[in-house]
Amino acid sequence: MYDTKHTAITATLEEAIRSGRYRDKLPPLRALMQEFNVSMRTIDKAVKPLVRSGLITTGNQGSFINFIAGGRERYQTWGLLTPHQVSQDEWVGYANVQRYLAADNHFNTMLINCANPQLAAMENWARLPVDGIVFGFDTVSAFRTEAVRRAGIPAVALHYVEPEYGIHSVSADHFGAIDKVVQRLTAVGYRRIALQLIHPITGLRHATAKWTAIQEKYGIAFSEYRYPVLKEFPETATHLRAHNDYLCQVTPPEAVICWHCHADWTLDYLKTRTGNHSILAVSYLSTDQAPGNFLPLSCGDLVHRQWLRIAEVLNSALRDNNRLMIELLPFDPEFLDVPPPPGVFYHPSTARFQAVDA
Results as ranks from 00 to 15, higher is better:
10 T>M: 05
11 A>Q: 10
11 A>V: 06
12 T>C: 06
14 E>Y: 07
16 A>I: 04
24 D>R: 13
26 L>W: 02
27 P>A: 14
29 L>W: 08
29 L>A: 12
30 R>T: 11
42 T>C: 02
42 T>P: 02
44 D>H: 14
47 V>T: 01
48 K>T: 12
49 P>Y: 12
50 L>R: 01
58 T>D: 12
61 Q>W: 15
64 F>A: 13
65 I>D: 08
66 N>D: 02
66 N>F: 04
67 F>W: 09
76 Q>V: 07
77 T>D: 03
78 W>P: 01
87 S>V: 05
88 Q>A: 14
89 D>K: 09
91 W>R: 14
91 W>Q: 13
96 N>M: 12
101 L>W: 02
106 H>L: 09
115 A>S: 14
115 A>G: 11
116 N>I: 11
121 A>W: 04
124 N>Y: 07
127 R>Y: 13
128 L>V: 01
129 P>M: 10
132 G>Q: 00
133 I>K: 00
134 V>A: 03
135 F>E: 01
137 F>I: 02
138 D>V: 08
140 V>I: 15
153 I>E: 00
153 I>F: 00
154 P>R: 00
154 P>V: 00
156 V>F: 00
156 V>E: 00
157 A>L: 06
159 H>D: 05
162 E>Y: 03
165 Y>E: 11
174 H>W: 15
176 G>T: 09
177 A>K: 00
181 V>R: 01
181 V>S: 06
186 T>R: 15
187 A>C: 05
188 V>R: 13
189 G>C: 04
193 I>S: 01
193 I>E: 01
199 H>R: 08
205 R>K: 13
205 R>P: 02
207 A>S: 14
207 A>Q: 10
212 T>G: 09
217 K>L: 10
221 A>F: 04
222 F>E: 07
225 Y>S: 05
226 R>Y: 03
232 E>Q: 09
235 E>H: 09
237 A>H: 09
241 R>A: 14
245 D>H: 12
246 Y>M: 07
249 Q>F: 07
250 V>P: 00
251 T>I: 15
251 T>P: 08
254 E>W: 05
256 V>S: 04
258 C>G: 04
266 T>C: 12
269 Y>L: 15
274 T>M: 02
284 Y>S: 10
287 T>H: 13
289 Q>H: 11
290 A>N: 07
290 A>L: 10
290 A>G: 12
300 G>K: 10
306 Q>G: 05
311 A>K: 05
311 A>P: 04
314 L>Y: 00
314 L>S: 01
322 N>R: 15
322 N>F: 08
325 M>D: 08
328 L>A: 07
329 L>H: 04
335 F>T: 04
335 F>Y: 09
335 F>A: 06
337 D>Y: 10
340 P>D: 02
340 P>A: 11
341 P>E: 09
341 P>H: 08
342 P>G: 11
344 V>I: 07
346 Y>H: 13
347 H>V: 07
347 H>D: 12
348 P>I: 09
353 F>E: 09
353 F>G: 03
